[in-house]
């Protein structure tokens, strides 16, 4: 608790948190404050910002604020889902392998390293372009999660291995606790702050990855995400025409989410990592 309290004294953490809560607030409360309509045409294509439509319209004449709020929700959804998948899979494999050691650990490490050298983006592109039935937002989140868990596994494994030799773990073992019990009750709690930081980073990465593949035109077919807004702006030549409202706000949003998460992560590391603690 002391540590958590300490966190709230760090200005950079508060700054990051405020930024992030701001975007969350926009995503959740935006629809209450703004009439969201991403279907109807409300004006000409790429109508400039003005009263009624604060950020103008997109290439199909749809209100840009509605698009951004909807896209933000989709991007956060992808981020959290992929972050959860990557963190859970990575943590379980990492903690288990790190604690167990031996042959099992070797096999898991080899598998992790194998996955690590597979270029994620290429796998994503191949997978997304081969999905004949169409790519849903959830599917894209799962693909991202399933390809980025590796480095959480590696990081967690190292931590877990260092905990293995602790006295309380040895005690639990003598008392006849099963491996799963030890991993879940004796090791994982010590790693929670670390896992949480991993989760934050994974979320930020997933949001950026989704934006990247959507920007390349391989985004979800069934929803609007920030990356898709950027892709639409690119393919419909908003950049050439100087229609800044078609891409700058989406870019800013992606940047702000990722940036705030990174700031939070860095601040937390300063508190939770004893070597960095002031």
């Amino acid at each position: 608790m002391e540590l958590v309290k300490g966190l709230f004294k760090i200005p950079s953490f508060l700054f990051g948190l405020a930024l992030f809560l701001g975007t969350l607030g926009l995503a959740f409360f935006g629809p209450l404050l703004w009439h969201i309509d991403v279907v109807s045409r409300v004006g000409d294509p790429y109508m400039a910002p003005g009263a009624g439509h604060w950020l103008g319209t997109d290439h199909l004449g749809v209100d840009m604020v509605s698009m951004l709020i909807t896209g933000l929700r989709a991007s956060l959804y992808v981020g959290f889902l992929a972050g959860v998948v990557a963190t859970v899979v990575g943590t379980l494999i990492g903690v288990y392998g790190g604690y167990k050691g031996g042959l099992l650990d070797d096999i898991l490490t080899v598998a992790t390293n194998l996955f690590l050298v597979i270029p994620t983006l290429i796998v994503l592109i191949l997978l997304s372009s081969s999905m004949e039935k169409g790519r849903s937002l959830t599917l894209i989140a799962l693909i991202i999660g399933c390809t980025t868990w590796t480095w959480s596994a590696r990081a967690v494994r190292a931590q877990s291995a260092s905990l293995r030799a602790r006295d309380h773990v040895a005690l639990a073992r003598i008392n006849g606790y099963s491996t799963i019990e030890i991993v879940l009750e004796q090791i994982l709690p010590y790693l929670l702050s670390y896992v949480f930081m991993v989760f934050i980073l994974q979320t930020a990465t997933a949001i950026l990855t989704e934006a990247t593949i959507s920007m390349l035109g391989l985004g979800p077919y069934d929803s609007i995400s920030l990356g898709k807004i950027l892709n639409d702006a690119r393919t419909n030549e908003a950049l050439i025409g100087g229609k800044w409202w078609a891409f700058i706000p989406a870019m800013v949003l992606v940047t702000v989410i990722a940036f705030s998460l990174y700031v939070i992560n860095t601040a937390m590391e300063g508190v939770f990592n004893p070597r960095l603690r002031k």
């Binding site: 000409d44 294509p45 290439h59 004449g61």
Partner: peptide, 8 residues
């Protein structure tokens, strides 16, 4: 809409 939006 097709005329105005999709084909400028």
């Amino acid at each position: 809409d097709i005329r105005d939006l999709a084909v400028s």
